[in-house]
């Protein structure tokens, strides 16, 4: 149980990092941490081998995006400092985590899942929605969608254990990452932040 709460905290910290930082290296590092924590929370419902699929797929998605960005010789995105929206983003991510914490008790009671699992799942979904909602930048939209789906998969794992669904969700995670990579290559004249 304690490890599940730790995984929830890790998700919140990774979510804050993902939302606040504009450097793609930090973003992908945060995504990798998110998938590690998500793996642990999925493991509460699934056997180790099945939940490891989520981890491996997530990390492969990060690798695909990272390799594309690295090969495009992209400089790290310029950090504009706290006065240029950094503080707002930090506050928004913390608020998302708090709202998720409040809603987690209801989701936990509704679905009969442990509160830290519900909290981790809702935090990821909230951060994903925030990312999608405030940007039109391809990389961040894809990171937002991956985060949102990772959050959904934690909850869904608690209620559905079909192998076909696991396979399809992995295909979708990888497909989204490859879509992101394709969009980044197409938009390489723009500097990804």
């Amino acid at each position: 149980m304690l490890l599940n709460w730790l995984a929830g905290v890790l998700i919140l910290m990774a979510g804050i990092g993902l939302f606040v930082s504009r450097d793609w290296r930090w973003n992908l590092g945060a995504m990798a941490l998110q998938y590690l924590a998500a793996f642990w929370l999925v493991h509460a419902s699934w056997p180790l081998a099945a939940s490891a699929v989520k981890l491996i797929t997530g990390w492969m998605a990060c690798a695909a995006l990272g390799m594309t960005l690295a090969s495009a010789r992209t400089e790290p995105g310029k950090e504009h400092g706290w006065r240029d929206g950094g503080f707002f983003r930090l506050l928004a991510a913390v608020l998302a985590g708090l709202v998720a914490f409040i809603l987690a008790t209801r989701l936990s009671a509704w679905l009969g899942i442990a509160p830290p699992i519900a909290w981790g799942s809702l935090t990821l979904m909230a951060v994903g929605l925030l990312l999608i909602g405030i940007t039109t930048q391809p990389l961040r939209v894809i990171l937002g969608l991956l985060t949102l789906l990772a959050g959904f998969e934690i909850t869904y794992a608690a209620i559905e254990s079909s192998e076909l669904v696991t396979a399809a969700q992995s295909v979708i995670t990888l497909g989204l990452a490859l879509t992101g990579a394709y969009l980044l290559v197409a938009a390489k004249e723009e500097t990804p932040q």
Binding site: T136, L148, L176
Partner: peptide
Amino acid sequence: LSGRDKPGRGLLRFITFQTL
């Protein structure tokens, strides 16, 4: 999207809404 086109807002919204 061909390799030469820049992704537009329509495509990103399409992917986002259908994924949601």
